[in-house]
Nucleic acid binder design. Structure first.
Length: 272
DNA sequence: ACTGGATCCTGACTGC
DNA sequence: TGCAGTCAGGATCCAG
């Protein structure tokens, strides 16, 4: 569910409320996520202050003196700060981190595809973070990088974009949107795209992600910001979920196909 | 080394 | 109204 803009919006939403706060208690009601929530999480966190709230791809990293809390929202995860303790948990509210001030960081995840792990030491060395590609909004991500990554490969360019080893944070929605803006057919083999077109694609990825962050992410069903408000980028979507509707550029009907087992949307006239 | 498919789990929606 | 089937924003693992 949440892609980079939704994770970044979440990070920005919670950071001011937990920065500098000291952990009083950790309550894990259901440790069953993608990997079990560590049984000793409370021991690790109690008494420590939040030093930073960072993001790497779709991972949120909460920095403490002795390590990092690594959080991934999976498909249906949500992280928010409750103003005080004692708010009764709902069915899928799997864990709380309660601060001395009373503020409570609460994780909710109906589908339980999310992650909550404790990382002692250098986070970049962790197996989940090692090998990740560049951040799409950093200078290290550009057309040359995409062109290199796709060289000689037959995989559809949309799957290349969604491969976290190539570039992080781009999921199904924004892969569709970036390819639409760049005028590239999502099914086209990654190795058969010219460098100039990859330049355009890299620019489109940066633009679509930056705009989505400005709009607070895309709310389709169950994604909401830390304060409960929806993101408004759905209003700007060019093709995602618009099958049968008119392309805003040429008026042709948007088509839906399956690429890499994921719903894929494109304009047959604008994208080649 | 690449690639596509199966898989984890629950909820919302669709069609009969 | 009920029920079965389908689909979903992610990412790992495995077989070919």
């Amino acid at each position: 569910m949440p892609e980079l803009p939704e994770v970044e919006t979440t990070r920005r939403g919670i950071a001011p409320h937990i920065l500098g706060q000291r952990v009083q208690a950790v309550q894990v009601r259901d440790p069953r996520l993608r990997w079990p929530v560590p049984a000793d999480l409370q021991e690790q966190l109690v008494g420590q202050q939040v030093e930073a709230v960072d993001r790497r791809g779709k991972y949120i990293l909460v920095r403490f003196q002795s390590g990092h809390l690594l959080v991934h929202l999976g498909m249906s995860g949500r992280l928010r700060v409750l103003p005080g303790p004692g708010v009764p948990p709902d069915r899928h509210d799997h864990y709380d981190i309660v601060f001395v001030s009373g503020a409570t960081l609460r994780y909710t995840d109906p589908r339980r595809f999310g992650t909550c792990l404790w990382l002692a030491g250098e986070p970049g060395a962790h197996w989940l973070l090692r090998g990740l590609g560049p951040e799409p909004l950093d200078a290290g991500f550009d057309g040359a990088h995409l062109h290199r990554s796709g060289a000689g490969r037959r995989v559809a360019v949309k799957n290349l974009l969604m491969n976290a080893q190539v570039v992080v944070g781009v999921g199904n929605i924004y892969a569709n949107e970036a390819l639409y803006r760049a005028g590239i057919d999502p099914r086209r083999a990654a190795g058969r795209i010219a460098r100039a077109r990859y330049d355009r694609l890299a620019d489109a990825v940066k633009a679509v992600l930056a705009e989505a962050i400005e709009q607070g992410g895309t709310t389709l069903r169950d994604y909401y910001r830390g304060d409960g408000s929806p993101g408004f980028f759905a209003l700007h979507l060019g093709v995602y979920g618009r099958q049968g509707e008119r392309c805003r550029v040429c008026g042709d009907a948007v088509r839906q196909v399956v690429v890499g087992q994921r719903s894929t949307y494109y304009c047959p006239s604008c994208q080649r």
